[in-house]
């Protein structure tokens, strides 16, 4: 009996600190988001007024919110498709073709992933700078005589694509490494027999590689949604701050703005709840529609 109690004490001592921290700084704040969305709560004053779903009603008529909605969806679709296509191609090339310096490429491609988003934003402001930027100075060689420089971050129609490029640049290496890991598990013999039957490389990619790593692709797709929502916020916060004139406002940057700059915490959290439900819903739908029969090697 004594041993049993020592065991329970040990288990308790091991779990409790983690549980306390987790509840205090993860679970309670998460519930806080949902609770606060039902209140009209302005800033430091303790004036909290329960308003039910009123915040959500206001939200449904908030054009700025819809703009951030559109921008977010555009970024999710654009960044996901381009990043996924490119990282799959690069992963396939690096793991299928015997290229000299394969390791070198892998090391280089992963670099953006270890940099802080602030650092990447600073790098891209240098690239996009209208007067002395790297991009415009290259373009000016080809476009002699064009006097007005391209405002990569200043043009309302262009800026969202400039943002997407920075996000893609950051993400390719990370997903490439994930896909390479799962591609390396596909047995070589499959490719050998396919070659003997006269199947070309591109055909092999679509008929062997893609189906066999499909489970992995599905998982990354779900994560893509969540991380695009997240990263778009990080990039917007440090690169454009939502500008020019709200052209790059995304879900979470709008939430953050409402909560801090505007000090309407309740309203900000209502946005948070909608984004939360949206990202879960979208992940769920993607998970469902990409369902295929699981293939074994």
């Amino acid at each position: 009996m004594k041993k049993g109690r020592a065991r329970s004490t040990f288990i308790g001592l091991c779990i409790t600190p983690a549980l306390i921290l987790y509840i205090l700084f993860m679970l309670l704040p998460t519930f806080g988001v949902f609770k606060m969305s039902l209140y009209k709560w302005g800033g430091y004053s303790n004036k909290k007024e329960f308003v039910g779903f009123n915040n959500f009603k206001i939200l449904m008529e908030d054009m700025n919110f819809f703009r951030s909605f559109q921008n977010t969806i555009l970024l999710i679709v654009l960044v996901t498709t381009v990043t996924m296509t490119l990282s799959l191609i690069f992963a396939a090339i690096l793991s299928r073709e015997r290229i000299k310096g394969e390791n070198f490429f892998r090391i280089i491609f992963y670099i953006p992933n270890i940099l802080s988003v602030v650092v990447i934003s600073a790098i891209f402001s240098a690239i996009y700078d209208p007067a002395n930027g790297l991009l415009n100075s290259i373009l000016s060689i080809f476009m002699k005589g064009e006097s007005s420089p391209i405002l990569w971050l200043g043009n309302q129609n262009l800026v969202i694509y400039s943002l997407a490029i920075a996000m893609i640049w950051q993400a390719i290496g990370y997903y490439m490494v994930i896909y390479m890991a799962s591609m390396s598990r596909i047995p070589e013999s499959l490719y050998e027999s396919a070659s003997l039957e006269g199947s070309g490389k591109i055909h092999q990619f679509f008929s062997i590689t893609l189906p066999l790593i499909w489970t992995n692709i599905r998982t990354t797709l779900t994560f893509f949604v969540i991380s695009s929502i997240n990263l778009s916020f990080l990039f917007v916060k440090s690169l454009t701050n939502g500008g020019p004139d709200g052209a790059t406002e995304v879900f979470l940057s709008y939430m953050y703005k409402q909560a801090y700059t505007n000090s309407s915490y309740g309203y900000g959290m209502a946005i948070g709840v909608v984004v939360f439900l949206f990202s879960f819903g979208l992940s769920g739908i993607l998970h469902f529609v990409t369902k295929r029969e699981h293939l074994e090697f």
Binding site: F25, P29, T30, G32, V33, M36, Y256, G272
Partner: peptide, 29 residues
């Protein structure tokens, strides 16, 4: 032990909590 499964699910669920939402409640707390 009793409750292990529940604890595992609880911590796993945390993988889906997005830190950028909960920063506001943490700040207010």
């Amino acid at each position: 032990f009793k409750g292990r499964k529940l604890l595992n699910i609880l911590f796993m669920g945390g993988l889906f909590i997005n830190v950028n939402y909960i920063v506001v409640p943490i700040f207010l707390m």
